[in-house]
C-alpha cells in the first residue's frame, strides 16, 4: 500500500473533524477549505509540503503495515498527537498547518452570524 498525499490530507481532516466536533462535524466543508487554501500557497513551498505529507502518510507503514490514511480513527489521532508533540520542528509545523486550516474550516460561515461584512447596526 503506497503513501498518497491527497488521501492523507483527507484522512487527517476527517480525524481532526471527528475529534473536535463529533457528529456535528462537516469534514467535507473543512476539506474544501484546506485544499482551496493549499492551492494558493507560495509555489516554492509546495514540493517540500508534498514530500512532508507523503512522509507523514508513510510513517506507520513500518509499525502497522499501513499508511496513515488506512489507519483506524484512534490510531490516526495517536499519530497526529505524536507529530504535534514531536521534537522535530518540521513535523510540528506540518501538523500546525493542517490542523489550523481544518479547525478554521470546521466552523463554516453560515453558522457564524458575526462575520457579515455589513455589521449589524446595534450600536448601543
Amino acid at each position: 500500500m503506497m503513501p498518497d498525499a491527497r488521501s492523507a490530507i483527507r484522512a487527517l481532516v476527517e480525524a481532526v473533524a471527528r475529534r473536535e466536533r463529533g457528529d456535528a462535524a462537516q469534514p467535507d466543508v473543512a476539506l474544501r477549505f484546506v485544499t482551496d487554501s493549499l492551492g494558493g500557497m507560495p509555489g516554492y513551498l509546495r514540493p517540500p509540503l508534498h514530500l512532508a505529507t507523503l512522509a507523514f502518510d508513510a510513517w506507520p507503514i513500518v509499525s502497522r503495515g499501513r499508511p496513515f490514511h488506512r489507519l483506524r480513527h484512534e490510531e490516526r489521532l495517536r499519530q497526529i498527537d505524536a507529530w504535534e508533540r514531536s521534537v522535530l520542528g518540521p513535523c510540528r509545523m506540518l501538523m500546525t498547518l493542517y490542523v489550523s486550516l481544518t479547525l478554521f474550516g470546521l466552523w463554516p460561515d453560515d453558522q457564524d452570524e458575526k462575520s457579515g461584512q455589513q455589521e449589524n447596526r446595534r450600536y448601543g
Partner: peptide
C-alpha cells in the same frame, strides 16, 4: 468578512 471564502478570494496566497 473574515470568512473562509473571503480568505480564499481576497487574500494573497489565500492567507498562507
Amino acid at each position: 468578512h473574515f470568512s473562509g471564502e473571503e480568505i480564499v478570494r481576497k487574500y494573497r496566497n489565500r492567507g498562507l
